[in-house]
Design a binder for these strands. Structure first.
Lengths: 213, 213
DNA sequence: GCCGAATACATGGATTTCCATAGGTTGCGG
DNA sequence: CCGCAACCTATGGAAATCCATGTATTCGGC
């Protein structure tokens, strides 16, 4: 892990904590960027790399749990909460909402580093999955309306003539749309297409009656 | 929700707590079964219905978190922890390991009931998914060794002749195995089979080179 | 008006899948 | 030895999919 392929954000109003954490992370070969308030963090330009957010619960401008709730609407780095005055309901809520850990001060350097590594590893995985899904979604959006209608019928396993009947068109036309759709989706086989449709959570409302594939 | 289609297990060494919780749950039309120790609970015959486990952290025979860890190897009801002396690391660990909630005494009846309903609802969903998956796995186990070899090749989208080549057999033989396999798996189409293979997490190591489905 | 995209339909033909039927070999258990 | 399961192969033929190519209509943008 080099300092260019990840980043650790530190949000704590206590300058000494920011400095101590920054030094700890850099001593472990990690890149750290610190902020004194949630507002600063939210408004800052951020590198597009796997990340972790070390977040103090008691911030001057907003409660850390509230910030977690707010940033949850978009893509955001996994959170490692740190707090000097935590309570159990808060910790439960934080973890249920996806935080990687909830550490009470004083916490050990080791615990923090484990949490940070877990968070960055998690973010790396999620970002990769999101990128792939985003690409598939883009392909889906490039389909014509008709092609988009044909897709769920095809992946549900209907024969071409059955799918054509569902749309009230000829089988020949259905075949054309099907072919164009599969080309745009970049799939060489029906099997590939079915898997992509699953990834995109496209509903399957039909089923073939009777034999064969 | 009738008292026949679910159950709430209570494991607490304090008889008054067991009684109070039992009465609360029954006042809400729920069925409750109480145990004074983890050993009692583990050894008891349990109804095969959606359930919730209200688990005290400080038990005489074992720590509640340790019991969570032990029962995690099998199918077990979602846990709602209750405790009079909890600490944040314990609560974090409990939630991370899948507990529905971690309530510190004195907790409100409302909080407990919400947690219990969430747990039972969750268990109902998981049990349904597990039953379905178990059935699919049973079908998979009924395949002959050859049929089991053919399945991943087919769902990867290979042409029959390509799959046959992979196994060093004739295309005709591959077709026979394919047909028998799809019948045993209860699938009417390749699309259905692909979805089932995904559910069973059968690895796909091949891909068709070139056009068509 | 022209052009391109989207949609519809068609033909001719090749390839693949599917089906029904038949036959053979090997290994295991009763 | 016999029956059965598992595996292998084949034929003949029907159905489905795929491909290449062509035509026509409508709509929107330039």
């Amino acid at each position: 892990m080099t300092t260019d392929d990840h980043v650790v954000f530190i949000v704590d109003d206590d300058g000494r904590i920011r400095e101590a954490l920054g030094e700890l992370l850099e001593a472990h070969g990690m890149r750290a960027i610190a902020f004194g308030s949630a507002g600063e963090y939210v408004n800052a330009e951020k590198p597009d790399v796997p990340a972790c957010l070390i977040l103090d619960v008691e911030l001057p401008d907003i409660n850390g749990l509230e910030l977690q709730r707010q940033i949850a609407v978009g893509d955001h780095p996994p959170i490692v909460f740190i707090t000097g005055h935590g309570d159990i309901p808060s910790s439960v809520r934080a973890i249920k909402r996806g935080a990687v850990d909830f550490l009470t001060k004083p916490f050990s350097d080791g615990d923090l580093m484990v949490a940070v590594h877990t968070a960055i590893s998690e973010d790396r995985k999620k970002r990769s999955e999101r990128a792939e899904l985003s690409q598939l979604r883009q392909r889906y959006l490039e389909l014509t309306p008709r092609e988009r209608e044909v897709l769920p019928l095809v992946v549900s396993g209907l024969l071409n003539k059955q799918a054509a009947s569902e749309l009230g068109i000829s089988e020949v036309t259905l075949q054309i749309h099907r072919r164009n759709m599969m080309q745009k989706m970049g799939t060489a086989s029906l099997a590939d297409l079915v898997r992509i449709a699953e990834r995109l959570e496209i509903p399957v409302n039909h089923s073939r009656r009777g034999g064969g594939n």
